[in-house]
């Protein structure tokens, strides 16, 4: 009796769960593997996931899987079946930057894109009431005169803002020490407390406390980014070439699936995500946070993502340069 019941239960479970994948995808919850800790960016992914879930007719929970600059989330998702039930939240850091730095062995070609999601512009900001300089050129002049004395934060080490800031500093010949923080908020707190000299400030943080920051340089070439910082100077206003053209807007994420996922499944997800990203309520909610909703669809994936790897590769020497110069000063 006992055994019969178990077998019956197991069979029931099996018939419920193993219909062919393409019969009526999706049959159950689809999971998004998100590469960072809980915070604003997670909430933004949850907004898209919720809308996408409504389009698909199933829930799409976002699972925070932080670790190793986002690569843990990618490996976790790769180890799952390529059945469309797992979506990669493909931030540029784990998707392109970590492979460029030699910390991961995949390329953007190992994934099938669904749709681009959001981008997040950032800037170099100082605190209000700074007396040592009044603008970015002044900061650079100070840094040049005091090598190794400036303290700044890009959030974490070797992330995208770090690379861009290091590149900018390198082109001015300024050596400064990056201080890694667990969360961006802590870095901005220490900037305001006078412990740091400048820090990366994203749009969301700026919108929360416009009076608290002096935005020195917007690290994006998009006019929209400049506008979100109320017209603060951007890299296009500088007379130097950073080799950044086309890279902007940076800090984007594309939602991806494993490349072995059947096309008909990927198409269902693509259609749902495209509808979600085109919804006005979704765009509005994303914009409120200071993120930019993106409307590139999967056909533009190669064209947008392809060149980025090369550009980041060219920039990664800025990180090495910074490390070398700091070592020399010690």
């Amino acid at each position: 009796m006992l055994r019969k019941l178990i077998v019956a239960g197991a069979l029931a479970a099996m018939t419920l769960g193993t219909n062919p994948v393409h019969a009526e995808f999706p049959e159950r919850t689809v999971e998004n593997i998100f590469p960072w800790s809980a915070g604003t960016a997670l909430s933004v992914s949850q907004v898209i996931a919720k809308a996408m879930g409504e389009e698909l007719g199933v829930s799409v929970p976002v699972i925070s899987t932080p670790g190793a600059a986002g690569t843990k989330a990618f490996i976790t998702a790769m180890n799952r079946p390529a059945d469309g039930y797992t979506i990669f939240d493909g931030y540029v850091a784990p998707l392109v930057l970590q492979p460029v730095l030699g910390n991961a062995d995949w390329t953007y070609k190992d994934f099938k894109p669904l749709h681009s999601a959001v981008s997040n512009a950032f800037s170099i900001g100082g605190r209000k009431g700074e007396t040592r300089w009044t603008d970015f050129e002044g900061l650079m002049a100070y840094g040049k005169a005091n090598p190794g004395k400036l303290r700044y934060s890009s959030g974490s080490r070797n992330n995208l803002p770090h690379m861009v800031i290091a590149k900018v500093l390198q082109s001015y010949g300024v050596v400064a020490q990056n201080i890694p923080y667990k969360t961006d908020g802590d870095a901005r707190k220490d900037l305001k407390a006078g412990v740091l000299d400048f820090s990366f400030v994203n749009v969301g943080a700026y919108l929360q406390d416009k009076e608290g920051f002096e935005i020195l340089l917007v690290l994006s070439e998009l006019p929209g980014a400049k506008a979100s910082y109320d017209g603060a100077p951007s890299i296009t206003d500088l007379k130097i070439d950073l080799g950044l053209s086309g890279l902007a807007p940076m800090g984007w994420t594309w939602w991806l699936v494993h490349k072995d996922t059947p096309d008909e499944v990927a198409d269902v997800l693509r259609a749902a995500m495209t509808r979600a990203m085109n919804r006005d309520d979704v765009k509005e909610q994303i914009s409120r946070v200071g993120f930019v909703p993106l409307d590139w669809d999967h056909t533009q994936y190669d064209e947008i993502v392809g060149p980025v790897a090369g550009q980041l590769g060219a920039m990664s020497n800025a990180l090495a340069w910074e490390e070398e110069e700091l070592k020399k000063l010690r």
Binding site: M14, L16, T18, E27, R28, E31, P61, P81, Y85
Partner: peptide, 13 residues
């Protein structure tokens, strides 16, 4: 929460 489905992908919708 999606509970482990195992190699047969047994999940109840």
């Amino acid at each position: 929460v999606v509970l482990p489905g195992g190699i047969y992908g047994l999940n109840i919708p």
